[in-house]
């Protein structure tokens, strides 16, 4: 039964992807398996209705070296959200780290390695601030899809196909495995099967890029009772840090 479900979903996924890719047939109606759509919608609605949450993510990211070799690097991200106007992100790599604070009025980016930070005025909502960061300053906030007010609409934008691939465990948590496709990426989500349908794993495949790199994240330490105080969303300059400008995207200077 499980095998039948898997292959049925795979068939829908592949056929829909082929249809969407055909030049002569415009993809007006995404071919999304109803079960996949329902699983994603339940998860997104649950997130949207959560007034606050915190989550930790372990990340494995493919990197294509100039030599052509593909390697995988590891990262971690801690995300703290309080709707509608607070978030804090700590992103760490081996020798680097960046943190972002949004307190409803300002957006702060801290380069932890250099101990330098930038502060700019920010709009009144998380959604607007995420767009400001990305479109004005070229900063994609990690896992912004979890933070937006309508994760379902945001995630399904440009989706051409979707499928349900059965149930699988992720770190011991029984999950429902769904996958979606756009012209640029294929993304898969493993959603916990239970009263709290939270994402447990995310895989994004950049299918149009050389060697199709992937971005893999496993989410742990979900905390829906997050009672983080206002202070946690306010930037307090670390000892010895210094302010520097945050430069608007595509303005001035050469390309380093």
């Amino acid at each position: 039964m499980m095998r039948t479900t898997f292959y049925s979903a795979l068939l829908v996924f592949l056929v829909a992807g082929a249809r969407a890719g055909a030049d002569s047939v415009p993809a007006t109606q995404p071919a999304v398996d109803p079960t996949a759509d329902q699983i994603l919608r339940q998860s997104c609605d649950f997130l949207a209705q959560s007034p606050a949450f915190a989550v930790h993510a372990e990340i494995w990211k493919d990197v294509i070296l100039p030599s052509g070799h593909k390697i995988q690097v590891t990262r971690s991200v801690d995300l703290d959200i309080r709707r509608p106007d607070r978030f804090h992100v700590d992103a760490r790599a081996h020798k680097k780290g960046r943190s972002i604070w949004y307190d409803g009025k300002t957006l702060t980016v801290l380069d932890r390695e250099k101990n330098l930070y930038s502060i700019v005025d920010a709009p009144a909502s998380i959604d607007q601030t995420l767009d400001l960061a990305a479109e004005t300053y070229g900063i994609t906030v990690p896992f912004e899809d979890l933070a937006v007010s309508d994760p379902y609409t945001s995630s399904m934008k440009n989706v051409t196909a979707g499928g349900y691939f059965g149930d699988e465990p992720v770190l011991g948590v029984s999950c429902r495995h769904v996958g979606f496709s756009t012209d640029q990426i294929d993304w898969q989500l493993w959603v916990a099967d239970g009263p709290q349908p939270l994402p447990q794993k995310l895989v994004i495949t950049y299918k149009n890029e050389d060697q199709t790199p992937q971005y893999i994240a496993i989410f742990t330490k979900w905390n829906l009772m997050d009672r983080t105080a206002d202070l946690a969303f306010q930037f307090i300059p670390p000892l010895g840090s210094a302010p520097i400008p945050l430069v608007r995207q595509n303005t001035g200077g050469n390309q380093p």
Binding site: L130, T140, P142, E144, K157, N208, E209, Y215
Partner: peptide
């Protein structure tokens, strides 16, 4: 997109940044 994606699905729907 993989470089700037940061695990974001929304990032794929945004236009690529213009050259500096």
């Amino acid at each position: 997109l993989a470089d700037r994606g940061q695990g974001s699905i929304r990032a794929a729907a945004r236009p690529a940044p213009a050259p500096p």
